[in-house]
Every structure is written in structure tokens, then in C-alpha cells.
């Protein structure tokens, strides 16, 4: 029983990171129907910005995270403007290919500039303490990751539900043309979406750095893929779906490694994804809207 609770704790902080990345995926998808494969690499850039802000500027972890979020928000806007906007009226698969291109570009530009070796997140930024609560080992970094992830999700929910920008985002996502008629600037709204999504990814990147101690230019590929899986699992384009999907994937991986066979961990989480899709083809939270004829 104790081991199970420990495993659940393990799964929650892993899931929180997946969920944060998945949110960005899902927001972008919801608004322009683009699978932004470069999203995991934006997370990587966020981690490196956080790293340099700690090592070069000597900031603390909170400031580093804010700087990373700001830089990546800008990066997201630029990527959208340069690489995706010209393709907005083309087939979606064309923008998928530019997304792959942007992903490779971010990865190998970072390798070119900084080398492929991992960089060590300075431990001065965050002193790890372990708490022993009823036989469970809970680390303050677990708490840090979980609390800041949930905090960011709440902020996001607030923005989307109660601000004008959020309303505009929902409107564009629901019906692009109607939104234009209502006087909403679609370009601006899409830029904002990219900015917010990329900022969340950057936050996740800094968390990965703090949590696992090391970052490298190719670190975005696998979490990016898993977060994509999480987003689809929850129903892509649906924000609560991405959160739930992230936690589901995190917990699932933990439980498979803990109680099943760790050798098949990835196969099992992919398998569960397929099973869920077969039962509910639009993901857990997806609405079956029926097809427009």
C-alpha cells in the first residue's frame, strides 16, 4: 500500500510536466488545427534559457522561470509568424512539415551553438530537501513541480475563461470566420495562443532542469512525443483534456514500471492510447460533434 502511494507521488510530478507541455500542444491545435511538433523543442529552449539565466545572470529559480517563459513566448510568436502563418491557408499537412523543419532547426541550431553535451543545472538554484511523511519520501522538488504546474494551469484556466483574450481565443477556435466578423483580430489571437503555449512549455523545461539536474539539446523529442500522446488521449484541442491526459500518461508510465515490466513501458502507454481511441475516437474529453456535410 505504501509502495503504491509512493508510486502515485512519483507519477504525479512526472504527469505534471507532461501536462504542462500537452497544454501548449492542445491550445495550438485547438486554434489552428496544427500539430506543432516543434513544441517539445521550445521546451528545450526554455530549459536552456533558464540555465543561462541562473548561471550567467545569477538569478534565482523563480526569476529564471519567468525569463524563460518570456523568451519562449517571444520565440513562439516568431515561429508562428515566420513558419506557420504563411501556410495558414494551405493544407494542414504542409504546416506539419514546416513544424518538423522548425523542430530540427531548433535542435541542431542549439547543438551548433552549444554542443550536444548535456549541461548541468546548477544545484545552487534549488536545494533539494527530502520530507519523510508517513514513510513516504517526498522531495521539495516534487512539491515545487506539482504546485507550480497546477498553479500555471489555474492561471491558464482563468485567462481562457474570464479574460477578453481568452474569449477571443475560444471564439477563433470555435469559428474562425465568425470571429473575424465579430471584430476579433485572428492574427493577434493566434499569436497570443502561441505565446502562452510556448511560455508553458518553457516553464516545463525549467522544471525538467530542476527536477532531473541535466538538460541537452535533444531533450525535447521524447517528452514532446509523450505530451502529444497525452493531448490526444485527453481529446486534442480541449484544455482540461490535456491536463488529465498528462497526468494519465505520467501515472500509467509509473505504474507500468512499478508493477509491470519496465521494458515495455512505452509500448504499454502507446497501447492504452490506442485502446482509448478505439473506444472513444476523439479522446477522453472529446466531443463527438458529428460531421458537417
Amino acid at each position: 500500500m505504501q509502495e503504491l502511494i509512493q508510486q502515485l507521488v512519483n507519477g504525479l510530478s512526472l504527469g505534471a510536466i507532461y501536462a504542462l507541455i500537452a497544454l501548449g500542444y492542445t491550445m495550438v491545435y485547438g486554434i489552428i488545427k496544427l500539430i506543432n511538433f516543434a513544441h517539445g523543442d521550445v521546451m528545450m529552449v526554455g530549459a536552456f534559457v533558464g540555465f543561462f539565466s541562473i548561471t550567467l545572470l545569477g538569478t534565482n529559480i523563480a526569476v529564471a522561470m519567468l525569463i524563460a517563459m518570456a523568451v519562449c513566448a517571444l520565440l513562439g510568436v516568431i515561429i508562428e509568424k515566420v513558419a506557420y502563418r504563411p501556410l495558414r491557408n494551405s493544407t494542414r499537412i504542409a504546416s506539419l512539415i514546416t513544424a518538423i523543419g522548425v523542430s530540427l532547426l531548433l535542435e541542431y541550431l542549439t547543438i551548433f551553438l552549444l554542443g550536444p553535451n548535456q549541461k548541468i543545472f546548477p544545484d545552487t538554484a534549488f536545494t533539494v530537501k527530502a520530507y519523510d511523511i508517513a514513510g513516504l519520501s517526498i522531495l521539495n522538488k516534487d512539491v515545487f513541480v506539482f504546485v507550480s504546474a497546477v498553479g500555471l494551469m489555474l492561471v491558464l484556466q482563468y485567462i481562457i475563461k474570464y479574460t477578453k483574450t481568452g474569449k477571443a481565443m475560444r471564439a477563433v477556435s470555435l469559428d474562425n470566420e465568425a470571429a473575424i466578423l465579430m471584430g476579433i483580430s485572428v492574427d493577434k489571437t493566434i499569436s497570443t495562443t502561441f505565446a502562452i503555449g510556448s511560455a508553458l512549455a518553457a516553464a516545463a523545461g525549467v522544471m525538467v532542469g530542476v527536477y532531473y539536474g541535466a538538460i541537452n539539446p535533444l531533450m525535447g523529442i521524447i517528452p514532446g512525443l509523450k505530451a502529444f500522446v497525452a493531448a490526444v488521449l485527453g481529446g486534442i484541442g480541449i484544455i482540461p483534456g490535456a491536463m488529465v491526459g498528462g497526468f494519465v500518461i505520467g501515472l500509467l508510465e509509473t505504474l507500468v514500471s512499478g508493477y509491470g515490466n519496465s521494458l515495455y513501458r512505452d509500448a504499454v502507454s502507446f497501447g492504452v492510447l490506442i485502446l482509448i481511441l478505439l473506444v472513444k475516437p476523439t479522446g477522453l474529453f472529446g466531443k463527438d460533434t458529428g460531421e458537417k456535410v
Binding site: Y212, I222, S257
Partner: peptide, 14 residues
């Protein structure tokens, strides 16, 4: 585990 894994706690708990 597989290359680029960073989270080993589940298996370690086991």
C-alpha cells in the same frame, strides 16, 4: 530504461 529517460523513480521504488 531507455536512452534520454530522466525519471527512474517508479522502477526504483519497485
Amino acid at each position: 530504461f531507455v536512452k534520454d529517460d530522466r525519471d527512474f523513480r517508479a522502477t526504483l521504488t519497485k
